[in-house]
Simulated scan of single mutants.
Amino acid sequence: MSARHASGQFLRAAHVELGDTAIRDILSLGQEAEVITPESLRQRVIAEIQKIGEAYAA
């Protein structure tokens, strides 16, 4: 399901396996993507982003 938000952004619902492939796919979209639910996937994506930030900050 996809829908356009009043702000012009798209909201897209997708059924995905909650594994490393899903995280890589989400991260490949860069700042264009935001995981809203499930919270467990959102937290895994946040953790990966933090690791990337730490790697580049060093």
Rank of each mutant, 00 (worst) to 15 (best):
M1Q: 01
M1S: 14
S2K: 13
A3S: 12
A3F: 05
R4H: 02
R4K: 12
H5I: 06
A6N: 09
A6F: 02
G8V: 01
F10T: 07
F10V: 04
F10Q: 02
L11Y: 04
R12Q: 12
R12V: 15
A13H: 03
A13K: 10
A14C: 00
V16H: 07
V16L: 15
L18Y: 08
L18K: 01
L18V: 02
L18E: 04
G19M: 09
G19C: 11
G19F: 08
T21I: 09
A22F: 03
A22M: 07
R24W: 08
D25V: 10
D25I: 07
I26H: 02
I26K: 01
I26N: 06
I26G: 06
L27G: 07
L27V: 08
S28D: 02
S28C: 09
L29C: 15
L29V: 00
E32L: 14
A33T: 05
E34W: 05
E34M: 04
E34G: 02
V35H: 03
V35A: 09
V35F: 05
I36Q: 01
T37E: 15
P38V: 05
E39F: 08
S40I: 14
S40E: 15
R42C: 04
Q43E: 15
R44N: 06
V45D: 06
I46A: 11
A47H: 10
E48S: 10
I49H: 01
I49E: 08
I49M: 14
I49S: 06
Q50K: 15
K51A: 12
K51W: 09
A55M: 08
A57N: 08
A57S: 07
